[in-house]
Structure formats: structure tokens, C-alpha cells
């Protein structure tokens, strides 16, 4: 089966996913597809339920109804760590690093799902474990260089400036070599130059076969990056398609600006 790779399109798929807290519907009936190798956007005003979607995919919230698949594996009820080991990585809207650990250690922990040396080897300090640790440190440094933060390798992650912390978080997510990477407002608070710099990196990642799903408010950035975007409002999906179309959609404009601008 030489050309099997072309036949099966690898993707993250949500089928009619809903989430309610008590009687309140946070998101309802969401269908979404994020294929590997391309960048998908998820936009919508504050409170639309975008971050809830990411929490549902990664398993930090329980799905009320509907199903989530990665390729053909169902993730609907899986625990967060299982989902991560299947190849779903994420970043957080309010960056979450391990503040006491060094920058390098923060990246190395991203490799966790690929570590092979056994627990016993770790306990006894066997060469296999020590070798792996050395190799991981080296690979960690390479990733830090790619994100141009290698000079902070030994500093405590919590002591870095905001922009650098964001890079460390990205580096950690990349270290996990995910199949799907979920980005929650990756360029929030950055200027256009910084954003574009990161944008190049995302394109690189997509080109290497990773599927990216990003929540973003920056319309310019989304238009530049995404092949397809989804728009949400009040927990519902209101539009989906190429950025040009979706951003012109009257429903989307109404959701962002209020009804009276929709017909303008």
C-alpha cells in the first residue's frame, strides 16, 4: 500500500459537540474539521465559547453530547493525558508554564510522550535513562534555538518577559511533536512584526504536516494564516469557509459589531 498516505486524510473532527453547565448551553451542536497540514481558524466575539471548544477537545471539560475524533480514533470520553499521547497539544490563553522549572526543562517535559526509557531505569539511574536525558537536553536546546530563546535556557521560566514566555510555551507544544496543535490566542498582545515572525513559524509547522487550530481575534493575522475559518457566536457555529467569505458574512459582522452594522 504505497499510496495509503494520500488516501486517508488525517484530521481532527468534531461531530455535533455540545456542552452545557447546569441548564446553560455553553456551546451547542458544533461541527468542525481541522485537517493535518493546514491552519484552521476559529473566531468569534468574547464569550462565544471558543476556549470551551479547546477544553472539550483536550479533555479538561466533559462533553455533554456529540463526539470528537482524531483520524478514526474517538476521543470523546478519553482522559486529558490519553488525548495528549494521541497527539493533541495545546497552548493556553493565559500562558501556563511550569514557573519554577528552567526554560529548558519546560521544553524537555514536552517530549514526555516520546520518552522510552523505563521507570526502573529511571529509579536505578541506569545508563539508558541518563543517555535519554542527555539526548533530550540536546534536542530541547535545538528547539529553543529555533524559537530564538536559547540564551534563557537555564533561567526559571516564571522570570521571563511575556513575549518570551509565549515562545517557551510554543516550544513546549512543538517538542511534543503533535499531530494537532490547538493555539488559544497565540499572538494576543503582540505587534504585527512579532505576530508575523510567529506566523512564519506556524506555516513551517503546518508545512511539516501538523494540523493547527487557532483561536484568534486579529483579523489580519487570521486572514493571512488560515485556509479555512469557523465563526462562532453565543455557543453556536454561524459560518464556515475561506477567510474572505466568512469575514464578509452578514451574520459574522452582526455578531462582532451588533445587528445594525450587518446590512451596512
Amino acid at each position: 500500500m504505497p499510496n495509503r498516505k494520500e488516501v486517508t486524510v488525517s484530521e481532527l473532527r468534531l461531530d455535533a459537540v455540545s456542552k452545557s453547565f447546569g441548564g446553560l448551553h455553553a456551546v451547542s451542536n458544533i461541527d468542525l474539521v481541522a485537517p493535518q497540514g493546514s491552519i484552521t481558524g476559529l473566531i468569534g466575539p468574547n464569550g462565544a465559547g471558543k476556549t470551551t471548544i479547546i477544553n472539550l477537545i483536550t479533555g479538561t471539560l466533559r462533553i455533554s453530547s456529540g463526539r470528537v475524533f482524531l483520524d478514526d480514533v474517538e476521543l470523546t470520553t478519553a482522559e486529558p493525558d490519553v488525548i495528549a499521547r494521541r497527539g493533541v497539544s495545546r497552548t493556553f490563553q493565559n500562558i501556563r508554564l511550569l514557573p519554577e522549572a528552567s526554560v529548558l526543562d519546560n521544553v524537555i517535559i514536552g517530549f514526555h510522550r516520546h520518552e522510552r526509557s523505563s521507570v526502573v531505569a529511571g529509579l536505578l539511574g541506569l545508563p539508558s535513562s541518563l543517555r535519554e536525558t542527555r539526548a533530550l537536553r540536546q534536542r530541547g536546546m535545538e528547539i529553543l534555538k529555533r524559537f530564538r530563546i536559547e540564551r534563557f535556557a537555564d533561567a526559571a521560566a516564571g522570570s521571563l518577559a511575556y513575549g518570551h514566555q509565549r515562545r517557551v510555551e510554543m516550544a513546549r507544544a512543538v517538542a511534543a511533536q503533535p499531530r494537532i496543535l490547538l493555539l488559544d490566542e497565540p499572538v494576543a498582545g503582540m505587534n504585527d512584526v512579532e505576530a508575523d515572525e510567529l506566523g512564519d513559524l506556524y506555516e513551517e509547522l503546518a508545512a511539516s504536516g501538523i494540523g493547527l487550530l487557532m483561536i484568534e481575534h486579529n483579523v489580519r493575522f487570521v486572514t493571512r494564516m488560515c485556509t479555512r475559518i469557523y465563526a462562532m457566536a453565543s455557543g453556536k457555529m454561524i459560518a464556515a469557509g475561506p477567510p474572505g467569505e466568512v469575514l464578509k458574512d452578514p451574520n459574522v459582522i452582526a455578531a462582532y459589531l451588533g445587528d445594525r452594522y450587518a446590512k451596512g
Partner: peptide
């Protein structure tokens, strides 16, 4: 490393597959 991650932030640890 897994111990350290869990100790500092369980959510992050789980999201990293620990």
C-alpha cells in the same frame, strides 16, 4: 520531570500526556 510537572501544574502535566 513528570513529578515536577504534576507538582507545579496538574493541568499542564495532563495536557502534555503525563
Amino acid at each position: 520531570r513528570a513529578f515536577d510537572a504534576i507538582h507545579q501544574d496538574e493541568t499542564v502535566a495532563a495536557v502534555l500526556g503525563i
